[in-house]
Design a binder for these strands. Structure first.
Lengths: 362, 362
DNA sequence: GCGCTTTCTGAAAATGTTTCCATCCAGTGC
DNA sequence: GCACTGGATGGAAACATTTTCAGAAAGCGC
């Protein structure tokens, strides 16, 4: 009740409470706790005892304000329940924890407005980096928006990391961690072609989504390489979900489309496609082969197990975090924003049981 | 270079920079931005212009320290890639965002040590609540540890929420959001029994896991209710993963165990079991019926689609957040820690295509 | 025993906000 | 015209910590 706050006002204990009770100065307590300055064993003991007695923890906000503080990385994701991106998040979070960093998570729900709001919110939090996950829509405005985010974060001493999206054009202070999307699609399509398939139903994803574009392009290149004409009529665009896979195949069958294989843009789409084929009385892979993309756990849990493209999602997450950690520890050095901060990880085909040579028929 | 910080020291702009540039007081800028006090239109315009010019965002740490600040909820989870808990996380995060709250995420990897460290870390962050997800191991120490967490968080003005775990004993300041685990198992087992199955392979999960215990108990009760003797030899314990489902069935078949249905503790376990049955040349559900638990998306993506128990994971997340938000807004009122803060949500069987009456045979 | 170095400790400034309290100014009633 | 009211604005304290700077104690050589 004096001018100074009474020592035990319900709320949490402060460093001053600890100092008073231990009969030492506030500065000493701070030093004991942060351990970045030598203190006598005697002092340490006294302080630590009081800390335990009071169950004291430092106030992270005050610490951050005063200069100390744990670095925090923000993960922004469309949908936390998507298996692929959950793995990236796991990679980021795991690597962050390893270094004693904290991770914040926000979901954007595919809403650019929310994305903007979240980036700003993270900027307020003074995060060390903002990691943006997931394929991007290739609108004109996208490049501008991202460039603005990047500069804005950079100016505030933070940094933008794009994971699973194509890098930004021009001299923008952002890091990109990408995978060889097109190459994976090329290899996957080649696998089908070399098994003898010529009529392939292609379900690459939304036409505006950068990942879908890359996967389609890779498939096309494979057809070219095999000298097989690519029929645009065999392409069905749509979202990366089970329902789309199901409906696309159902519709294609309904239209009497002739195909011996399905090249799905995603394992989940492949699962839907598989179900639709079964519903139509077709066997997989005897009548129709199916391949997916992503290699999420589902791929090996389906029957038959799905041949698909492995994407190193978790590693991408780790790499993303390492990139920002290095940059931060390496001082402010070389933020030229050149090609040095575009990392590309490899993909490869995982052969399982969902592909067979096409059945001979009239 | 004067005593005061020069107005543009590379780092982020402060509220003082804005105030100076706009020719108003710091207090006014604060009022314009937080909008909790009337200001003239003229002032607002002046301030907002400078805010935009400088791309200023408030420092969340300073704000929190001074008393304002966004409430934050921490979500602690074993494994972010588990589908069930991803849905809870989605519910929490979604509800948090709706109220302008922030969500932190940490993964414990089943390590009690890490769980402790994370709870403390969250306490430092001054989070409004810590949400702990997932079935707990029923060790003696568990109750004590959780009770300590609860009291410690409570003393710091925060709050512990247990989701998908049984409530704590005694007068502990914690909220529990649970689902009718045993009831779901009872209903699921009854479904099998009423279809005529009498020999059922039961894969409830790890024996020490509280969720597994509940599921096993529910199944037992159903057997009792149907007057069917329950054979403990038909129970196989193990982790909630695909491999366990596969291996348990493989082993049971190898031992010549006679069963017409599999009661899996989890959809993922069911998927493994299904694969093993197929590998042994058995058809599902013609030869052997299978049921799961959780109703994650995988359940409806398998062939045949899996009959399972729906658990309202996402809703549990929302309910958990609502509980802490209400408590916080409702003032400090009634923290009696009584039964009022144990919420139980219902479960129900979702009938799909993985169950058939057992085949007649010799 | 005295001065010098070394090592640890304490006082106080600084961090960027919010909010309480005081002030000022314009309008209003008489 | 004067006191008064009420709404907008500014000054400064408070929030809990880190860190710099200065000072004290202790050890050591001569």
């Amino acid at each position: 009740m004096s001018q100074r706050k009474a020592s035990n006002d319900a709320g949490r204990a402060t460093i001053r409470d600890v100092a008073e009770r231990a009969g030492v100065s506030v500065a000493s307590v701070s030093r004991v706790l942060s351990g970045n300055y030598p203190v006598s064993e005697d002092l340490r003991r006294k302080v630590m005892k009081v800390v335990r007695d009071l169950d004291y923890v430092t106030n992270a906000h005050a610490r951050s304000l005063a200069g100390g503080g744990t670095p925090t990385v923000a993960i922004l994701i469309n949908n936390i329940t998507g298996a692929a991106f959950a793995h990236v998040a796991k990679g980021v979070e795991g690597a962050a924890t390893l270094r004693g960093w904290l991770s914040l998570v926000g979901t954007t729900g595919d809403d650019p407005e929310r994305e903007l709001a979240l980036v700003n919110l993270m900027r307020q939090q003074g995060v060390a980096a903002v990691v943006l996950l997931g394929g991007a829509y290739d609108y004109d405005e996208y490049q501008l928006r991202m460039a603005r985010f990047a500069r804005s974060l950079d100016a505030a001493g933070s940094h933008l990391v794009l994971v699973g999206r194509p890098p930004l054009e021009g001299d923008v202070p952002a890091t990109t961690v990408d995978y060889d999307n097109e190459g994976g699609a090329y290899a996957m399509a080649s696998h089908l072609l070399s098994a003898g398939h010529r009529k392939v139903l292609v379900l690459p994803g939304h036409a505006e989504l950068t990942t879908a574009q890359g996967r389609l392009k890779g498939a096309r290149r494979a057809f070219d390489a095999y000298g097989v004409p690519f029929d645009p009529g065999m392409v069905r665009h749509g979202p990366y979900d089970y329902e789309h896979g199901y409906e696309a195949v159902e519709e294609a069958l309904g239209q009497g489309l002739d195909f011996t294989a399905v090249l799905a843009g995603t394992d989940v789409v492949a699962a839907g496609a598989m179900q639709a084929l079964r519903a139509a009385g077709l066997r997989v892979p005897e009548d129709v082969s199916i391949v997916g993309y992503d290699d999420i756990p589902l791929a090996s849990q389906l029957t038959p197990q799905l041949t698909t493209v492995h994407v190193p999602y978790e590693e991408m997450g780790r790499v993303a975090l390492r990139a920002v950690a290095d940059r931060r520890e390496g001082g402010t050095g070389r933020r030229k924003g050149g090609d040095g901060d575009h990392l590309v990880l490899g993909t490869h085909v995982v052969v399982r049981n969902s592909v067979q040579p096409p059945a001979r028929r009239g």
